[in-house]
Each structure stands twice: as structure tokens, then as C-alpha cells.
């Protein structure tokens, strides 16, 4: 052998077989019932499914087990199954949740109703059409710096940017935001997710773009009346209202509603001064 381990291979055939986990481990003997929305843009209804409950099972495990064994065409989005990608957003008992991060046991004694996100058009079952978010994203001025990387930036200059950068684009903040969910202002309002993106762009020490005018006009920052619903549902704990939206509102206010700046604009025309860090 080449690498140190002097162990004798022993019983060759058995060692070539992976130590298989005991399939019975974790089986609780109990079952879980889920009522899942089945339907499409035309409408639909809840269907009840029952499956064996396994220890530590998350709602996504349950949905995938139902898909494999009872309802092959049950539509659900998922990818990483580790709360890193933000694909499996849906609503459990009316609250936006990542299906992969929500344990079935959390609902002990309660009924579990699983529905697609409601702030967007339903495609089928648990899948809704979130493409609008990508259009909003595309319209935001991207990062721009005329200086050449590698940049010299110190931890203390950038540490507050790590928080907005954590966003996994699950769009649950968009789903819960009443400006979108109740008032359907999709055409005039970018939503919390994109205030989070604007925040790090505006606060990045090397970025040279100015997005405050866009935030005020195209992104409808003023529609937000800071009810903090978005912060409550964020699965990566971004303090969206306090750390993204309010600082942006302050910058917009000082840029556009400061009488001295207003006068400067009148004199200079459209000249907008960059609101630095």
C-alpha cells in the first residue's frame, strides 16, 4: 500500500461494500399527514397525503417521499437541500418557509398545509413564477469601479457588507411584503430582496455608481413603511429593515429632501452628488 495504513485488507468483498446505514434507524412508527396544494394558474385544491415519519424529517423530505411513492407529478422546486440555495421556498400554514429547513416535528399536533408562494403567479402545485425578480435585478446598476483589482480594503471597511451578501434569493421576503403580496406593486416596487442588493452596492467602498435616484423612482423605496415582515422571514437572518432599507431611506432623504441639496440641484441642473460612506 502506498499510504501509511498498514491494515490488512481482510475480507475483500465485504470491505468493498459501503457500511450501509441501518434503514430502520430513525423510523418512528408514526406517520405524518400533509395537505398539499395541487393545481395550477387555473386554480386547485388541497390533497391530503400520509407518509411514515422519520426522525429529523424536514417538510421537503416529506414532499419528495410523496412525489416518489404517491404523486409522481407533484411539482416542487429544490436543489441543495441545505438552506444554501433558496430554491424550495413555499408557504407552510400561510407563512413563507424553506421546505428543506423546516422540520415536520415543529408542527406536532397541528395540521400541515403546504402551498406555493402567493405573491407570484402559481405555475403548478408548490412552484410559482418568480421570474419577475430577475427582471428587477437586471435593471439595477451593477457594481462598477474604475480602480483595478486587487483592491486594498480592510475588514472594518467591509464587515457590514457580509450581511447583505448572505442573501440566498429565496424571495420569501418578497412573498411576505404586503406592498407586493397585498397591493401588487410589482411594477413600481423592487421589494426587500433588491434593497438588500442595493445596500451592499451603495456601501461598497470601491463602487462608484449612484443608485439613489433609481431607488427613489424606479425601485419605489418610499412604498416600504418598515413593518419588518421581511426581516422576520429571512432564513439567513439579514436584518433587512434595519440594516438595508432604513439606511437606504436615510440616504435618499438626505440626497433628495435636504433643502441645501435641493437648491444645489436647481442651480446645477441634474448634478447629483454621490452620498459617500
Amino acid at each position: 500500500m502506498t499510504e501509511g495504513n498498514g491494515n490488512n485488507p481482510g475480507n475483500v468483498t465485504s470491505r468493498a461494500h459501503s457500511p450501509v446505514p441501518n434503514e430502520d434507524l430513525g423510523k418512528s412508527g408514526k406517520t405524518a399527514k400533509l395537505k398539499i396544494f395541487r393545481g395550477d394558474s387555473e386554480g386547485g385544491q388541497e390533497v391530503e397525503y400520509e407518509i411514515p415519519l422519520v426522525e429529523g424529517m424536514v417538510v421537503l423530505d416529506a414532499v419528495l417521499a410523496i412525489q416518489a411513492e404517491q404523486a409522481g407529478d407533484l411539482a416542487v422546486r429544490w436543489n441543495c437541500k441545505a438552506a444554501h440555495c433558496g430554491s424550495c421556498s413555499a408557504e407552510i400554514n400561510g407563512r413563507p418557509k424553506l421546505l428543506c429547513k423546516t422540520r415536520v416535528e415543529e408542527y406536532d399536533g397541528e395540521e400541515i398545509h403546504v402551498h406555493p408562494m402567493r405573491a407570484f403567479p402559481v405555475i403548478k402545485d408548490l412552484v410559482s413564477d418568480v421570474s419577475w425578480n430577475y427582471e428587477v435585478s437586471k435593471a439595477i446598476k451593477p457594481f462598477h469601479s474604475s480602480e483595478q483589482a486587487p483592491f486594498t480594503m480592510y475588514e472594518e471597511d467591509v464587515e457590514r457588507l457580509y450581511e447583505p451578501k448572505k442573501c440566498i434569493e429565496c424571495f420569501m421576503c418578497q412573498d411576505v411584503c404586503h406592498v407586493l403580496r397585498t397591493h401588487h406593486k410589482h411594477a413600481e416596487f423592487a421589494g426587500p430582496r433588491f434593497f438588500v442588493r442595493n445596500q451592499w452596492l451603495e456601501m461598497h467602498p470601491m463602487d462608484e455608481e449612484d443608485r439613489l435616484g433609481d431607488l427613489k423612482e424606479d425601485n419605489g423605496l418610499g412604498f416600504c413603511n418598515i413593518t419588518k415582515c421581511c426581516t422576520e422571514v429571512c432564513p439567513v437572518d439579514i436584518k433587512i429593515t434595519d440594516n438595508s432599507i432604513i439606511p437606504l431611506k436615510e440616504r435618499v432623504a438626505s440626497e433628495f429632501y435636504d433643502p441645501a441639496k435641493w437648491l444645489m440641484r436647481k442651480i446645477r441642473g441634474n448634478g447629483s452628488s454621490r452620498n459617500g460612506n
Binding site: 457594481f143 486587487p150 486594498t152
Partner: peptide
């Protein structure tokens, strides 16, 4: 890697302000 930084990626920093 530097190109990513040029496009807005943010890495943890050394005390000298480097990646």
C-alpha cells in the same frame, strides 16, 4: 480571483487589507 473582486465579489480580508 482578482477579476471576481473587480466585479464586486467580496472576500474576507487580511490585516493588510488583502484577500
Amino acid at each position: 480571483v482578482y477579476e471576481l473582486e473587480q466585479w464586486g465579489a467580496l472576500f474576507n480580508r487580511t490585516p493588510e487589507g488583502k484577500i
